[in-house]
């Protein structure tokens, strides 16, 4: 069935069309929730983060110029909200710091739903510094190019490549 483009839904939502906004949420809710699970490691924080992200997106909706994909813009805001979430949770921890407690253990539902391998990878991701975890998330789960990742995180493409390179070594260690 013909699907209304994101940009059109954004314009409608900006004009006060609640239905268009709810359609946008339905379209990206699952992706954002899964992103939040992978970034936070548990469903409770993920649910909070997801609501926070959508609130923030709605407030910033009139800043969306439509010159890029809505999805990329959405994930950029999601990343900022995620960083904010981590700052609130662990104010003393920097973006490049390795978490002191390797992970917030993924909730049991993760193991019920996901395969063993994916659960292991997600669990190992929780041991990564936020800066590296964001690159892994966007590259593998978000399927973004390095250019897009660099744009979303406000870094250079080479930095994004370097972070991923380091993250892979760390993940390997965590999985062994």
């Amino acid at each position: 069935m013909f699907e209304v483009r994101d940009e059109r839904l954004v314009k409608k939502a900006l004009k006060g069309d609640k239905k268009a906004w709810l359609t946008l949420i339905d379209r990206y809710e699952k992706q954002i929730f899964h992103y939040a699970i992978r970034m936070t490691g548990n469903t409770h924080d993920a649910a909070d983060l997801m609501q926070d992200i959508f609130l923030s997106v709605f407030r910033s909706l009139d800043n969306f110029r439509g010159d890029g994909a809505f999805k990329a813009w959405l994930f950029r805001i999601a990343h900022f909200r995620c960083m904010e979430f981590y700052r609130r949770k662990r104010p003393e921890q920097g973006l490049d710091d390795t978490p002191e407690q390797p992970c917030d253990k993924p909730c049991p539902e993760m193991h019920l739903h996901g395969s063993q391998q994916s659960s292991a990878v997600v669990t190992a991701m929780q041991a990564l510094p936020l800066a590296q975890k964001a690159v892994v998330e966007l590259k593998f789960f978000g399927q973004f190019t390095f250019e897009d990742i660099a744009l979303q995180l406000g870094i250079s493409p080479n930095t994004a490549k370097s972070r991923l390179y380091s993250a892979l070594a760390r993940l390997k260690l965590e999985l062994e």
Binding site: L14, F33, F54, E109, S115
Partner: peptide, 25 residues
């Protein structure tokens, strides 16, 4: 491979309408 096999619980029911505040132009 993990991304392909990754499945996560469905998003919980939440008040989506609460995110909408009428900020029509």
């Amino acid at each position: 491979s993990a991304t392909e096999s990754f499945t996560a619980p469905a998003p919980p029911a939440w008040n989506k309408s609460a995110t909408f505040t009428d900020n029509a132009s």
